[in-house]
Amino acid sequence: MDKRLSDYIKKVVTEHGVTSTLKMKLLLEVFLRQSIFVNTSLPPKHNKRFWPSLKDIYNHVAAQFLKLRDSCVDQKLVVEMVEEQRSLHKGERFYIRIKKDQEPGKFTDENFGMTKTEQSMKLVNILWEWPRMDLPINKGTGNIQGYNIATLFAKDIKTKLKEILELEEGDKRCYEPHWRHLQWIDRNDLTDHNVMNNSVKGMEERNKLFHEERWAEMSALVLEEFGLFKPKTIIGLFSPPGYYLSLKNCNNGKLMATLEDETGQRLNEGVRYFKDVLLVEARIIIASVVKNITYREAEELLYPLK
């Protein structure tokens, strides 16, 4: 790996606390475009000096993370161990002194110590894609162009999403049926989806159909029907105790393995799956129904590739 990239990884981990391998990969691409190859073409993707693998990125992130020995993360782990021993040996006295510039029990990791409900609210907030959690959600009252949202979900969306969840094979090319789901379960990055999602024309079309309250209700219905918050079973350096988002009653072994393996739990891949796949599919289905157009026409309308 080029030294400029490894130095950048150290800077991002140290100063911004980024430990997600996928996020770091995206940041490295931005760094390449904006700092190293500003007025020239990028090197080919097979050049591992400038396009390191996810494994290489993970190793560099982990190495830098381990150097932060006096961090709140180390203290959290020690506190957890002490609390465990206190519960096992109730007649014994245990005392721990943590850094003086922090109050005991208060750490910078915003997920540590959050209740299941608080973490659920945080994930739902991410999925709804707005910074506030104070908008009222009155399920069954919203409508999109005269169509009741709850009725749309029950009649047109729920069954279709269930069918999509069980798909294991199919054409993964853009605009083929449910290509995002098929690419996602094969652990392919959704670069094309990100381009479509950031299309100004597509944003304008989506804004015409969905505003915050409407999309909050639909997101709540999708999460309520399919989402399941599970306690983490894989605890490690980058995966503190907590909950991750998975799926209810899903028989797709390929999909569940991606959601619930070590990487899936550590990076909370369920959030990405709901946000980039299920909720996108719900938008497309709604557009096809209310505008009376085909599924593909609705997808090209809301998520144009150019």
Rank of each mutant, 00 (worst) to 15 (best):
I126Y: 10
G140C: 00
T117Q: 13
L135T: 00
R296S: 12
A287G: 05
N111V: 10
V200Y: 05
F65Y: 14
N251P: 10
G142W: 10
E166H: 09
F107Y: 13
I235V: 05
I126A: 10
S246W: 01
L22I: 15
C250Y: 02
N249I: 02
N47I: 03
S87Q: 13
S53I: 01
K162M: 13
Y303H: 06
L305S: 07
I137L: 03
N111W: 11
E80H: 11
E176H: 11
A154G: 13
L237H: 11
F37R: 12
L302N: 02
F274W: 03
S71W: 10
P43K: 08
K248H: 12
N198P: 01
S53R: 07
K230M: 13
L26C: 09
K116Q: 07
S288F: 06
L28K: 06
K116E: 12
S53P: 00
R97W: 06
G17P: 05
S6D: 02
T294Q: 05
R283C: 11
P44Q: 09
T21Y: 06
L209F: 07
V61C: 04
V195D: 01
I293K: 08
Q145R: 15
F107H: 05
A257Q: 09
A63Y: 14
G17A: 08
Q119I: 12
E225D: 04
G227P: 04
I234Y: 13
R173N: 13
P136Y: 04
K160Q: 14
L26H: 15
D261A: 06
S6H: 05
R180G: 01
D186S: 15
L68S: 03
E217P: 00
E205D: 09
P177Y: 08
R214A: 05
I96Y: 10
L22F: 09
I157E: 00
H178S: 11
N249W: 08
W215K: 10
A298P: 00
N268S: 06
K106S: 08
L123I: 14
E118Y: 05
K232E: 02
S87M: 09
D156N: 14
E166N: 12
E260H: 07
M133Y: 00
E300H: 10
H193F: 15
K201L: 08
P44K: 08
V271N: 07
V12I: 15
V280Q: 02
K155S: 14
S53L: 03
I164R: 01
K291Y: 11
E212G: 01
D171P: 06
K248Y: 12
G227W: 01
R214T: 10
E29C: 06
K11C: 04
A298W: 01
K291I: 04
K99C: 15
Y243V: 09
N194D: 14
D192K: 13
R272S: 14
T151D: 13
A62G: 11
T294Y: 06
